[in-house]
Design a protein around this nucleic acid. Structure first.
Lengths: 185, 185
DNA sequence: CCCGAAACGTTGATATATCAACAGGATAAG
DNA sequence: CTTATCCTGTTGATATATCAACGTTTCGGG
């Protein structure tokens, strides 16, 4: 993962930002490649140097964030839940526009917007190794059920937090959600 | 004055913005080419494709704004003073960071910061054709004196307005300053 | 004083973005 | 149906930006 040419990063960044902005204004299907290029201040042809079409662009945009979240898993593994969650909520905060748009998007037919589902899957995957096997509190419980329970709960809280304009700071959220996840896993 | 390549505009815009930002943080002389490049997210060498050195960059940055202001003169000639001034104050408002930085900069030795002087000269030039020769109210007055009076007054008010965080909206400023200039010219 | 680090300004080779143009498909109005 | 318009994806030639590298200069500390 060495150096990537500056221009690539700048272009892709501009394109992703453009898509996010446009999605706050209209349905994804109604967005045109033309508009994305204009908003990003990039030549239309340039888009095809990086993406197949607008769906690919949206897909990679989502993928990028899921990967970023995935990275944090490794970093956070050995921490207390409450501490480990802080960077996550900070990340949600920093990328507020993205998450709020994605979670709000009304499932355009055919197209994207499996975002919530993908996010859930990503979290559940991350929780997998965190289920308490030692204390015995989960002996009667099925892993799948636990994961589903904790995953949907986590996504649900995040959704609520984002939709309501992030009424509490990341630290507070991390502490409370951390405590709840601790009990659930 | 036909089309300029997008990349040129983007690069120059980024560089100018970088300079403005850095000038709010430190004296212009202490700013390094390296820093400008980093802040603008541009390769250091790229700067030399557009400018001789950082002084040239600052110079062209100032020049750009003076030209923009000059353009408005032509557009505004035939309007009432109060109306003609609105776009000016809106321009100051939009480029708040630039003007506040430039007017605040403590005349680094040798370097730039003749900004106030250049601004004044620009305004006086614009006022030249606007002195009332008909009503006779200025028969006993010397043009140079009138220009100096009105010019410094105008610059002074702008300076005050900017420094104090633009306490009144552009429309209000335009109306009041317009009335005062009307009397003076 | 000398040294090393950092900034400078420049170069050549390369990568990327731009632009104009094209042909095809979709859409909507007459 | 036909036309006009807009969007799409793609192309080739060109312009611009990037990167690594270099020798030089500047500057502060030892």
């Amino acid at each position: 993962m060495s150096k990537v040419d500056r221009r690539i990063l700048k272009t892709q960044e501009a394109l992703k930002q453009a898509v996010i902005e446009l999605m706050t204004e209209k349905n994804f299907d109604e967005i045109t490649i033309q508009e994305i290029a204009d908003r990003a201040n990039v030549n239309r042809g340039t888009i095809y140097l990086h993406y197949q079409d607008k769906y690919d662009l949206l897909d990679k945009l989502i993928e990028t964030h899921l990967i970023s979240l995935g990275e944090m898993d490794k970093w956070a593994c050995q921490l207390d839940w409450a501490d480990a969650l802080i960077p996550y909520f900070e990340y949600f905060e920093q990328n507020y526009l993205f998450f709020s748009t994605m979670l709000a998007s009304k499932e355009a037919k055919g197209a994207p917007s499996s975002f919530r589902i993908r996010l859930l899957a990503s979290f559940m995957e991350g929780f997998k190794g965190e289920i308490d096997k030692e204390s015995g509190k989960n002996t009667d419980l099925n892993d799948e059920v636990i994961l589903q329970f904790a995953g949907t709960a986590y996504v649900g809280v995040i959704e609520w937090w984002i939709r309501n304009g992030m009424p509490y700071p990341p630290q507070v959220m991390a502490k409370q959600v951390g405590a709840l996840l601790e009990r659930s896993l």
